[in-house]
Amino acid sequence: MEIIADRRTCEGLGMCEAMAHEFFEVGEDGLVQVLEEFPTDEHRDLVDAAVQACPVAALRLRG
């Protein structure tokens, strides 16, 4: 599984970071930064919930 972030769409609302701070961070530029692009399967539910929580659909999972 790979986390894909569309920084052009991101509005820096931080829902992803609030739900899964191990994988997402809103950087100094106010946009999402993926801290770990390839989370293990044990984290799939956590990461998927954070991706689904993005109000502007700037995140997705591949694989």
Rank of each mutant, 00 (worst) to 15 (best):
E11I: 13
P55E: 10
E42I: 04
A50L: 00
L59M: 03
P39N: 11
E37Q: 07
V34K: 06
E36I: 14
A57Q: 04
I4A: 12
F23W: 11
G27F: 11
Q52A: 09
R44Q: 12
H43T: 06
E2G: 05
E25M: 13
L46A: 02
V56F: 06
E37R: 11
H21I: 01
H21T: 14
M1K: 07
R44F: 13
A57F: 14
A5E: 09
P39R: 04
F23H: 11
P39L: 14
V34T: 10
P39W: 12
E2H: 12
D45M: 12
E28F: 08
L35F: 07
I3V: 11
E25Y: 12
Q33P: 00
E22I: 12
T40S: 13
R44G: 00
A53E: 10
E25S: 09
E25P: 01
D6C: 05
R60V: 01
E37G: 08
E25F: 03
D48C: 01
E36H: 08
G12P: 07
D41H: 07
A18P: 02
I3R: 11
L31Y: 15
V51C: 03
A53I: 01
T9N: 03
D29P: 01
F38R: 15
T40Y: 05
V56P: 00
F24H: 03
A20W: 00
C54V: 08
Q52I: 10
G63F: 08
P55A: 05
C16F: 01
F23D: 14
E37W: 02
R8T: 10
A50K: 03
L31E: 11
E17P: 10
A5P: 05
G14C: 13
R60L: 04
D45Q: 15
Q52M: 05
A20F: 03
M19S: 12
F38V: 09
V26Y: 06
V34Q: 06
Q52G: 00
I3L: 02
F38N: 15
V32S: 09
A53G: 03
V26F: 08
D6K: 12
G30Y: 02
A57E: 11
Q33W: 13
R7C: 05
L46Y: 01
E11D: 13
C10F: 11
E36A: 07
D29Y: 04
V32D: 05
H21C: 10
A20G: 02
A49H: 01
C16M: 02
A20E: 11
Q33E: 15
